[in-house]
Amino acid sequence: MKPRSRRDTWRLLVLIAPSLFWLLIFFLVPLVMVLVISFGQRGTYGGIVWDFTLSNYARFFDPLYLRIFGRTAGIALATTVICLVGGYPMAYFIATRPPRWRNTLLLLLMIPFWTNFLIRTYAWLLILRDQGLVNMVWTGAVHNLFLHLATAYPAATLFSSLAGLTSVPLELFGTNGAIIVGLVYAWLPDMVLPCYAAIERLDFSLVEAAQDLYANRVKSFLRVVLPLTMPGLVAGSVLVFIPALGAYVTPDLLGGAKSIMIGNVIYSQFMSARDYPFGSAISFVLMAIMLIATLIYFRLGSD
């Protein structure tokens, strides 16, 4: 659509001015700043030496950082897959309830998110750490049960070995698993909501049509429901994958010292190492990867 007159052009400019201004000041300018800094060098005392170098980008390909990035990508992918496998059926369930139930169920899904993100993540720390809720039951009730069984049936060695196993706490905290649990918990609604929107829009007479044409439940799902709700699934996956890839708080709290993600590396470059150029370079690489991954994904999903 072309603006028909100068007046229309002006009206258009006035209308988009606020968002244009917002994007310019808070998105484009910082982005350019980060880009420029990423080609600089760290000064001896932490400042920025303004000369042009690609060494920061070359440094990203150091095995140390590649390994962290690999772990980050793995965690983000696992988070997305788990959210998908758990969130899609949840969305399907909600979308197929009678209309009066749907809003209630969606509300129940959202309620936990009225609590501050930091507090919710901290709660997981209290659940997963060595003296946490899970291990209290593990080394308490479960351990006692097996101890009891071992004394009752001394012949069964299984019980005594199980009693031995439960005497030490499970190593939950500080693992990739702990981070994934925290991330899935944090981003699940971002998967459920777009999937819900897609499934709710689905015309279920199409499912009946498929079944009428000899497709059983599995086939009618794969051939009709899944392709038609794919846009929601793709949107949900992107909405989960991107924040998970750049996660910082969750791995910081639940990953301990051993499991760190690329977000923590960027943080430490800016805050502890005071190497702004390297931190900027990692940020840019991460952004490029996210962009490429998203484009590929949308392309695949639109087929």
Binding site: S205, E208, A209, A210, Q211, D212, A215
Partner: peptide, 27 residues
């Protein structure tokens, strides 16, 4: 329904929007 020897013409047709006419008929 998928084991009954009957087929239905639906009121709103219920054609699969993501498939071509050929794919619809061939389903």
């Amino acid at each position: 329904p998928y084991r009954r020897p009957v087929n239905t013409v639906f009121q709103n047709y219920a054609l699969f929007p993501h498939m071509s006419v050929f794919q619809n008929v061939a389903f």
